[in-house]
């Protein structure tokens, strides 16, 4: 099995508070890393460090066996990150958002309506995104998971604002992705109802909480 994520001795301090120190994270191809912890423990910070959006105070991250400073673009070509903010343009319609996102991912969606139906946006394609609910906007953002060719997914709280069928649908997609050798790192407060074969649980508590 090839190592997809290999992070060594990550330390992060935010606003004078140590979130985690000397944290090692290793995920293999096809593996799932489920990061858990209380609010403000540093789950998002860890995901953003792995995605290369943040610099750790100490430690380094290798993705696909390469550190970020060697070839950042090659790194980013294999990586899909969706954070708290969905990255959906509220002035544009759902279909326009999907089509533009596909442009960024370098693919052409064969049947956008089919995709809209899959992610539960059928009938809402022509409404500008600002008129949609938070859950529907999140579905637009997550629709990317159905066409992006990136093998590593890093998803921060993907289930937020989704209804129960949406959560189930998403987990089915996760299962397909990891089944094809894809890798997934996610945070969530609720346990997964799906049992991936290679699941790692990582619970972050800030070291200062022990004192």
């Amino acid at each position: 099995m090839t190592m997809v994520v290999n992070a060594q001795q990550l330390t992060s301090v935010r606003a004078g508070r140590t979130l985690f120190a000397d944290l090692d994270v290793q995920v293999e191809a096809g593996g799932v890393l489920h990061v858990q912890g209380p609010n403000g423990a540093g789950k998002s910070t860890l995901l953003r460090i792995i995605a290369g959006l943040l610099q750790p105070l100490q430690g380094q991250v290798e993705l696909f066996g390469e550190p970020a400073d060697v070839d950042r673009e090659q790194w980013q070509r294999r990586l899909l990150f969706i954070g708290h903010k969905p990255g959906v343009k509220s002035e544009l319609t759902a279909l326009e958002n999907l089509e533009l996102q596909a442009g960024f991912d370098g693919v052409v969606i064969d049947d956008p309506w089919q995709l809209a139906e899959t992610v539960g946006l059928l009938g809402l394609e022509d409404i500008s995104a600002q008129q949609l609910s938070a859950g529907q906007q999140r579905r637009i953002a997550l629709a990317r998971l159905w066409f992006s060719p990136a093998p590593l997914w890093i998803l921060d709280e993907p289930f937020t604002a989704l209804d129960q069928p949406g959560i189930e649908l998403l987990q089915q997609r996760f299962a397909e992705h990891t089944g094809h050798g894809g890798t997934l790192i996610l945070t969530s407060h609720q346990p997964l109802s799906w049992q991936p074969p290679q699941l790692q649980q990582l619970i972050i508590r800030s070291p200062e909480a022990h004192d």
Partner: peptide
């Protein structure tokens, strides 16, 4: 692997911003 070329990404970005 995402295979979008630089020009394709830039074009998409400009198209999106002009549309918005």
């Amino acid at each position: 692997m995402i295979k979008a070329s630089t020009w394709q990404v830039v074009k998409t970005l400009m198209r999106r911003d002009l549309k918005v």
